[in-house]
Amino acid sequence: TEEVEKIVRELQKRGVSQEEIQRILKRNGIDPRDVEHVVRRLR
């Protein structure tokens, strides 16, 4: 989703690792598959 993408991009800008990003998003109830998808697209 748009929202997830924004969050991921923001965290990446701050130098947060992929694993940490995924952990944060999972904690916020976001589907890990969505996270994977977004992270892969932004690489």
Rank of each mutant, 00 (worst) to 15 (best):
T1V: 12
T1E: 09
T1D: 08
T1F: 13
T1K: 08
T1S: 08
T1W: 13
E2H: 11
E2K: 11
E2L: 10
E2G: 09
E2D: 11
E2A: 12
E2M: 10
E2I: 10
E2S: 10
E2C: 15
E2W: 12
E3A: 11
E3H: 11
E3W: 13
E3S: 10
E3C: 15
E3V: 10
E3R: 09
V4E: 01
V4N: 01
V4Y: 05
V4P: 01
V4R: 01
V4T: 04
V4L: 15
V4H: 02
V4G: 01
V4W: 06
V4I: 13
V4F: 05
V4A: 04
V4Q: 02
E5I: 10
E5L: 11
E5A: 08
E5G: 03
E5W: 15
E5H: 05
E5F: 14
E5Q: 04
E5D: 05
E5K: 04
E5M: 13
E5S: 05
K6G: 05
K6H: 08
K6F: 09
K6A: 09
K6R: 12
K6P: 02
K6T: 06
K6S: 07
K6V: 06
K6W: 10
I7T: 05
I7G: 00
I7A: 09
I7S: 03
I7W: 12
I7L: 12
I7Y: 10
I7N: 02
I7Q: 08
V8N: 00
V8D: 00
V8Y: 12
V8Q: 00
V8L: 07
V8W: 10
V8F: 12
V8P: 00
V8T: 02
V8I: 12
R9F: 05
R9D: 03
R9L: 06
R9Y: 06
R9K: 05
R9M: 07
E10Q: 12
E10H: 10
E10T: 11
E10S: 11
E10I: 12
E10A: 13
E10N: 08
E10F: 13
E10Y: 13
E10M: 13
E10K: 11
E10L: 13
E10V: 11
L11K: 00
L11A: 03
L11M: 10
L11F: 05
L11Y: 05
L11T: 00
L11N: 00
L11S: 00
L11H: 01
L11C: 13
Q12K: 08
Q12E: 03
Q12T: 12
Q12N: 08
Q12M: 15
Q12V: 15
Q12W: 15
K13G: 07
K13I: 08
K13L: 11
K13Y: 07
K13T: 07
K13N: 08
K13M: 11
K13F: 08
K13A: 10
K13W: 08
R14H: 07
R14Q: 07
R14G: 05
R14W: 11
R14F: 10
R14Y: 09
R14I: 07
R14S: 06
R14T: 05
R14E: 06
G15H: 07
G15P: 02
G15Y: 04
G15N: 06
G15W: 04
G15S: 03
G15D: 02
G15F: 04
G15E: 02
V16G: 01
V16E: 04
V16T: 06
V16K: 09
V16D: 01
V16Y: 13
V16H: 11
V16W: 13
V16A: 09
V16Q: 03
V16P: 00
S17F: 03
S17G: 07
S17N: 07
S17I: 03
S17K: 06
S17R: 06
S17C: 13
Q18T: 14
Q18I: 15
Q18M: 15
Q18K: 11
Q18H: 11
Q18Y: 15
Q18R: 12
Q18F: 15
Q18A: 12
E19N: 07
E19W: 13
E19L: 11
E19D: 11
E19I: 09
E19F: 11
E19T: 09
E20K: 07
E20H: 06
E20A: 09
E20D: 10
E20W: 12
E20L: 07
E20I: 06
E20N: 08
E20Q: 08
E20R: 07
E20Y: 08
I21A: 04
I21G: 00
I21C: 14
I21R: 00
I21T: 01
I21W: 09
I21H: 00
I21Y: 04
I21N: 00
Q22A: 12
Q22D: 03
Q22Y: 15
Q22T: 12
Q22G: 09
Q22C: 14
Q22R: 14
Q22E: 10
R23P: 00
R23C: 15
R23E: 09
R23L: 11
R23M: 10
R23S: 09
R23Y: 10
I24P: 00
I24A: 05
I24M: 10
I24D: 00
I24W: 11
I24Y: 10
I24E: 04
I24H: 05
I24F: 09
I24C: 13
I24Q: 06
L25E: 00
L25M: 07
L25V: 01
L25T: 01
L25I: 01
L25R: 00
L25K: 00
L25Y: 00
L25W: 00
L25P: 00
L25C: 14
L25S: 00
L25H: 00
L25N: 00
K26P: 00
K26S: 12
K26R: 12
K26D: 04
R27V: 07
R27A: 12
R27S: 09
R27C: 15
R27Q: 08
R27T: 05
R27F: 09
R27M: 12
R27D: 06
R27K: 09
R27H: 07
R27W: 07
N28Q: 13
N28Y: 14
N28L: 14
N28R: 14
N28M: 14
N28W: 14
N28D: 08
N28C: 15
N28G: 08
N28A: 14
N28I: 14
N28F: 14
N28P: 03
N28S: 13
N28V: 13
G29I: 02
G29K: 03
G29R: 02
G29C: 10
G29Y: 02
G29P: 02
G29H: 03
G29L: 03
G29T: 02
G29W: 03
G29Q: 02
G29N: 05
G29A: 02
G29F: 03
G29M: 03
G29S: 03
I30Q: 02
I30E: 01
I30G: 01
I30M: 08
I30Y: 14
I30W: 13
I30P: 01
I30K: 02
I30C: 13
D31S: 07
D31Q: 03
D31K: 04
D31V: 02
D31P: 06
D31I: 02
D31W: 02
D31C: 04
D31M: 03
D31E: 04
D31L: 03
D31R: 04
P32A: 06
P32H: 03
P32F: 05
P32I: 06
P32N: 03
P32S: 05
P32M: 05
P32T: 03
R33I: 09
R33C: 14
R33D: 08
R33N: 08
R33Y: 05
R33E: 09
R33Q: 08
R33M: 08
D34S: 07
D34E: 12
D34T: 15
D34A: 10
D34G: 03
D34N: 05
V35D: 12
V35R: 01
V35F: 09
V35C: 13
V35I: 14
V35T: 02
V35G: 01
V35E: 01
V35H: 02
V35M: 04
V35L: 06
V35W: 12
E36H: 04
E36G: 03
E36S: 04
E36I: 06
E36C: 12
E36P: 02
E36L: 07
E36K: 04
E36Y: 06
E36N: 03
H37E: 15
H37W: 13
H37Q: 13
H37D: 15
H37P: 02
H37T: 13
H37V: 12
H37F: 11
H37S: 13
V38K: 01
V38W: 08
V38D: 01
V38E: 01
V38S: 01
V38F: 04
V38L: 11
V38N: 01
V38R: 01
V39H: 03
V39C: 15
V39Y: 07
V39N: 03
V39E: 03
V39D: 02
V39I: 15
R40S: 09
R40I: 11
R40H: 11
R40D: 14
R41K: 12
R41V: 04
R41L: 12
R41M: 13
R41G: 05
R41E: 07
R41F: 09
R41D: 09
R41C: 15
L42F: 03
L42E: 03
L42M: 04
L42W: 02
L42R: 07
L42D: 03
L42G: 05
R43Q: 14
R43I: 12
R43G: 13
R43V: 12
R43A: 14
R43D: 11
R43H: 13
R43M: 15
